[in-house]
Nucleic acid binder design. Structure first.
Length: 726
DNA sequence: CAGTGAGCGAGCTTCCGCTTGACTT
């Protein structure tokens, strides 16, 4: 029987689709891009109209081979890659790489769908279209520009700073944001201001509450700004003014306030929320999300629990919305369901919306029903995704908000008083209907105020002047950096997590004890070089401007080659000048150590394996040793299990793999792939080490091992309830 | 699994965006 070959990008997607389509469809996966510019050289002929040289990487060879074989058997090829710039390019590259015959080319179809439902796919199959060459051109422009910038600026840094560095449209801006934030913090001067809080109680006895507090907001009917009271003297004068004043209610304002649920997750918001509530890194979030996406064994074959996790869209399929509603009606009751589904619009810059939002594939599978099949972190992330989705289809939360203004007066006005009237405000808020908060709680301060009437008197129990200082801007976390990058349209869902790794791997930034990014010396130096000499490329708006041009290419208003040329000609000229003009600028870091061989000071150098300490008398004196601070940081403070004299330190192999060794190397040759437990092997007396898989003996000849306990069942789940961002 | 930094000039480092494996315990 004639078979149709359908090619998608993800093998999981292929598996899902094959359930919807009949036996005459064979579904294969391209595993992302199959061709790219070569890694080892520029691969763009700048002298020949930027002709790109595409190669099939070793990784893609077997994939292409398999697809070619499949194409040979098929009577029709259907390219069903994602409906965005990259997806269109993948389809185009497939056509190029599969070596199709003329006849095959004629029958090859391109289809798109952005929800994986039977209906959407069947619909797509009836509407094939040709490859959109203009969209492909836009992708090529993007790819080639990134290559030109990255592969030409990086060597500039190798020459001017040190080997191994890199620069690029995305990473260099990420580093810039961190560097600039650090400088703001360095330049920050805290500013003092004061507040005055009154602890009040109704003059007539009431039922609860008997006390409430109010903030000073106006002086003689002029609204007080944040720095309205600048120092203790002023605060004390006000308190003195209020001595013996008469306090009574001037206005009471009641209003109904509602709060909407946040949109369902995109990659960016999932990473942010998983950090905020679960303290997951971007990488960890993506790894666990991938597991949930690929499928969890639920007894009768693996089931993908969530939709695709790399997306910038907040769209949800009609089927999912209906299933969500049904779940809510059954489990929470009709008044927690919406008459018609709540729809969200994607606001983020440059969104391409090839996929749905991240949501549970089947809302009926609530977190509790699948808990036994998930490990702790899978459960926690699924719980988050599921609840966020269900919340989107629940009503707004409703509040009664009350604002009571209390005025003071003193007559006659005392001679030395600053003012005659002061106004204090008390805000209260009570939940009337919890709505979506029932499943997706966020921190909401509920405060009940006493029932008061206008002109009713209140008694001041206490006046509390409070000293405050403004806070410096906070350093970026992975979550806030991803949020900021997305805001500027920089980076894509598939790259947010890798960007976090790259800027750290290059040594531009470090995470401090609070897991917040701080620039290193190299980070400052490289950033300043780039900002000074290549301002166009590291402009925060550069990507946004590029995207505008890519859109014009995609709309057929521009050709890709002239767009690249307009950028490249001045870039190349500038680069050439800077290569000769700019002086080498390796940061010089001194240490407080003195060379024991020649007496000259030791300084920090940058080598192939990172920082180390070397004699400043180089090359006359070749003394070098590992950096103390690095050593201390990696020193576990545990005696070496072999020689006892040295300490166990964390080291890295040439390939970057972590191992544990003795600080007295090479005098002591202790080395292990796992952390020593401090205990000895009951069989052979060699040290025991703890690896990912359990505790084992470090000796190769000994087979002693102890399995780690199975992951513990999650008992006390206390979600951190913080407010969600706008 | 144990070194680095100048350079004689060997060979190497590097981008962004799609997508998962391949080693082993």
């Amino acid at each position: 029987m004639a078979k149709h070959l359908v090619i998608v990008e993800s093998p999981t997607k292929a598996k899902t689709i094959s359930r919807f389509l009949g036996a005459d469809f064979i579904i294969e996966s391209s595993y992302g891009h199959i061709r790219d510019l070569p890694a080892y050289k520029l691969g763009v002929d700048t002298a020949n109209n930027f002709e790109p040289q595409y190669v099939i990487s070793r990784r893609s060879q077997p994939v292409v081979k398999k697809l070619k074989a499949g194409a040979k058997e098929a009577d029709k090829i259907i390219l069903a890659t994602d409906e965005d710039r990259e997806g269109e390019a993948i389809a185009w590259h497939l056509i190029q790489a599969l070596g199709l015959t003329k006849k095959q080319l004629e029958t090859t179809e391109r289809i798109v769908f952005h929800e994986i439902t039977k209906k959407a796919i069947e619909e797509a199959l009836t509407h094939p279209r040709p490859i959109d060459e203009r969209l492909v051109s836009a992708q090529q422009a993007r790819r080639i520009l990134d290559r030109l910038v990255g592969y030409q600026l990086s060597p500039f840094l190798w020459k001017k700073v040190t080997r191994g560095l890199s620069a690029g449209r995305v990473q260099s801006v990420a580093v810039r944001l961190i560097v600039e934030r650090e400088r703001e913090i360095q330049a920050f001067k805290p500013q003092e201001y004061w507040s005055i809080i009154a602890l009040l109680s109704p003059a007539e006895e009431k039922t609860s509450p008997v006390e409430f507090s109010a903030n000073l907001i106006k002086i003689d009917n002029v609204v007080l700004d944040k720095f309205g009271i600048q120092n203790e003297k002023e605060a004390k004068e006000i308190v003195a003014d209020l001595e013996g004043a008469e306090w009574k209610v001037s206005t009471i304002e009641k209003r109904a306030v509602s709060k909407k649920p946040s949109p369902p997750f995109t990659t960016s918001t999932l990473q942010q929320e998983a950090w905020r509530r679960l303290r997951f890194s971007a990488k960890q979030t993506m790894l666990i999300a991938q597991q949930l996406y690929e499928g969890i064994e639920l007894g009768e074959g693996p089931v993908g629990l969530i939709t695709y996790m790399r997306t910038d869209s907040v769209n949800m399929s009609g089927e999912a919305l209906a299933a969500g509603k049904e779940y809510i009606e059954t489990n929470f009751g009709k008044n927690y369901a919406l008459p018609s589904p709540r729809i969200f619009k994607t606001k983020s810059k440059g969104a391409q919306e090839a996929h749905e939002a991240i949501r549970p594939t089947d809302p009926k599978l609530d977190p509790e029903s699948v808990r036994q099949y998930l490990n702790r972190n899978q459960y926690r992330l699924y719980d988050l995704v599921w609840k966020r989705f269900i919340a989107t289809q629940m009503p707004d939360a409703l509040f009664d908000a009350t604002a009571i203004d209390i005025g003071t007066s003193k007559s006659p006005k005392p001679q030395h008083a600053r003012a005659s009237h002061y106004t204090f405000r008390s805000n209260g808020q009570i939940i009337k209907f919890d709505g979506f908060l029932k499943v997706y709680p966020i921190k909401i301060g509920e405060l009940l105020l006493p029932e008061l009437k206008k002109d009713e008197g209140v008694i001041p129990k206490e006046l509390k002047p409070g000293q405050h200082y403004t806070d410096p801007p906070s350093r970026f976390t992975e979550a806030s950096l991803v949020k900021t990058l997305e805001k500027f349209g920089i980076g894509r869902p598939s790259t947010y997590a890798p960007i976090m790794s790259t800027i750290q791997d290059r040594g531009y930034v470090l995470k401090n004890d609070e897991k917040r990014f701080q620039p290193t010396d190299i980070g400052f130096v490289v950033n300043d070089l780039l900002v000074e000499h290549f301002p166009v490329v590291v402009d925060i708006q550069f990507t946004a401007k590029m995207e505008e041009e890519l859109d014009e290419i995609a709309e057929g208003k521009k050709e890709w080659r002239p767009v690249i040329k307009d950028f490249y000609i001045p870039f190349e000229k500038n680069l050439k000048e800077k290569f000769t003009e700019v002086e080498k600028k390796t940061p010089v870091e001194t240490t407080d150590e003195v060379c024991e061989k020649c007496g000259k000071p030791m300084i920090v150098r940058y080598g192939r394996f990172g920082k180390f300490m070397a004699c400043s008398g180089f090359p006359d004196c070749k003394n070098a040793k590992s950096l103390k601070s690095v050593e201390e940081k990696q020193n576990l403070g545990m005696a070496c299990p072999k020689c006892v004299e040295g300490n166990v330190i964390v080291k890295k192999t040439r390939k970057g793999k972590i191992f544990f060794g003795c600080s007295r190397y090479p005098d002591c040759m202790f080395a292990a792939w796992g952390k020593p437990t401090g205990e000895k092997c009951p069989k052979c007396e060699n040290p025991l080490i703890e690896t990912k898989y359990g505790i084992k003996c470090n000796s190769k000849e000994c087979d002693y091992k102890m399995k780690k306990d199975a992951p513990q069942a999650d008992t006390a789940e206390v979600p951190e309830t913080t407010d969600t961002p706008e």
